[in-house]
C-alpha cells in the first residue's frame, strides 16, 4: 500500500474466500423481510420464544452496517486479542441500544492505531441511523453512523498522550437478490483525529489535528444457516510520535478475515485473523511477508431483548 498498490497478500485472501464461496450452493438464507421482523412482545411469551429472535447485528467486525439492532433490543459486544502485542490484551467493546426501528445509541471503541503501533480501541459515543428507504431485493440500504470521540490516554515514558477520534460513517449494504448468500458493504469514514502530547509537568509539547477521509468495505458470505464468512478492510487513523519529534497523524490499513457464527439466535461468536499495515508512516513497513504482526481476535455479540423481557415480567412495553 505504501507504493500505491493494495497489498497482494490481502487481495489474494479476499479473492480466494470470494471464489470459494461463489461456488457454494445457496444456503437457506431467510428473506430480508423475515430478518427485519422484530421480536413480538407478549406477556405470555416464554423465555425460549423471546430469545429465539430474530435479531439483527448492526456491524461487521468494526465497520457499521446499514442496519440497526431494532427497537427494544440491546446488544453487548466485546473482543480481544492476546497476540497483537506481547503480554497485552487489546480489547474493544460496543454497547448499543435500539432507539425506535431506525436508530440506535451506542458506546463503543472505534478502531485506530496507537503510537505504540497496536490497534488501539478509542472510546466513542454515537448514534447510528438506518435511512428509512423502501427495502426491496437488490436495492441497497443506506446508513449513517456518528461517533463522538472520547479522549484516550496513552503513557510513553514520562509523557502523556491524549488521542481522540470522531467519526462520521456513510455506509451502504447490498444483499444479492437471487444469490442471498452474498452481502456487500461499502462506505466512507470521515475522521477528525487529534493527538496532544504533554510532559510530566503537564505542559503541552505539541498538538496535531487532522481530518481524514478513509474508505472502508466488507463482504459477508452465508456459508450455512448459522455461520457467515466476513471480510472487512478499511483505513484507520494512525497516531505517531516519538520523543524529540512533533506528533503526527497518518493512516494505516486494517483488514480482518473471519467468521460470525450464530451459536444461538441471541449470541454471535466472532473469530478473525487481523492484518495491519502502516501507510505513510516514519516506520518501515513490515512488507508482504510480515505476517508475524498479524493477530487473532475473538469476540462475541449478545442480544438482550429487554422490551420483550420487561413485557413478560411487568406487562410494560408489550405490543
Amino acid at each position: 500500500m505504501t507504493d500505491g498498490r493494495f497489498p497482494r497478500t490481502a487481495a489474494l485472501v479476499l479473492l480466494a474466500s470470494t471464489g470459494l464461496a461463489h461456488a457454494e450452493e445457496p444456503a437457506a438464507v431467510p428473506p430480508e423481510a423475515a430478518t427485519d421482523a422484530p421480536t413480538v412482545r407478549r406477556r405470555t411469551s416464554t423465555l425460549a420464544e423471546i430469545y429465539r429472535g430474530p435479531f439483527r447485528s448492526s456491524r461487521l467486525f468494526a465497520m457499521p452496517t446499514a442496519d440497526v439492532v431494532g427497537a427494544y433490543v440491546m446488544t453487548v459486544s466485546g473482543e480481544g486479542s492476546l497476540l497483537q502485542q506481547p503480554g497485552a490484551l487489546t480489547s474493544a467493546g460496543v454497547l448499543a441500544i435500539g432507539f425506535g426501528d431506525i436508530a440506535q445509541l451506542e458506546y463503543r471503541h472505534t478502531s485506530a492505531i496507537s503510537v505504540e503501533g497496536v490497534t488501539a480501541p478509542v472510546p466513542a459515543v454515537g448514534v447510528q441511523l438506518a435511512i428509512p428507504l423502501p427495502r426491496r431485493p437488490g436495492i441497497p440500504a443506506f446508513g449513517v453512523a456518528f461517533r463522538l470521540g472520547v479522549p484516550r490516554d496513552e503513557q510513553i515514558d514520562a509523557f502523556e498522550l491524549e488521542e481522540k477520534v470522531t467519526d462520521l460513517y456513510l455506509v451502504a449494504r447490498w444483499r444479492g437478490g437471487a444469490a442471498g448468500w452474498l452481502t456487500l458493504h461499502g462506505g466512507t469514514r470521515v475522521s477528525s483525529a487529534s493527538l496532544t502530547v504533554t510532559d510530566a509537568m503537564g505542559l503541552a509539547i505539541g498538538t496535531v489535528e487532522k481530518r481524514l477521509v478513509l474508505p472502508t468495505g466488507g463482504l459477508e458470505l452465508q456459508m450455512n444457516d448459522e455461520a457467515k464468512l466476513v471480510a472487512e478492510a478499511g483505513l484507520a487513523p494512525r497516531f505517531m510520535w516519538m520523543p524529540g519529534a512533533d506528533p503526527a497523524i497518518g493512516y494505516g490499513l486494517l483488514a480482518r478475515l473471519g467468521l460470525r457464527w450464530s451459536v444461538l439466535p441471541s449470541v454471535i461468536f466472532d473469530g478473525s485473523i487481523g492484518y495491519q499495515q502502516e501507510v505513510g508512516t516514519v516506520e518501515p513497513p513490515a512488507g508482504r511477508g510480515g505476517i508475524v504482526q498479524w493477530d487473532i481476535r475473538l469476540g462475541a455479540e449478545v442480544f438482550v431483548p429487554w422490551g420483550a423481557l420487561a413485557c413478560r415480567a411487568t406487562g410494560a412495553f408489550c405490543d
Binding site: V13, A16, S17, L20, A23, E24, E25, L82, L83, P86, G87, M223, L229, L257, G258, L259, G271, S272, I273, I291, V292, W294, D295, I296
Partner: peptide
C-alpha cells in the same frame, strides 16, 4: 494460538477436496 477457516470436502462440488486457510502465531 491458531485460527483456521475453510470448506469441507465435497461441499462445493463433487470430488472437491477440503480446503482450509490457517493462521498460527505464537506468544512471545
Amino acid at each position: 494460538a491458531s485460527f483456521r477457516l475453510g470448506v469441507g470436502e465435497d461441499r462445493l462440488f463433487k470430488h472437491q477436496p477440503a480446503v482450509a486457510l490457517g493462521f498460527r502465531k505464537s506468544f512471545e
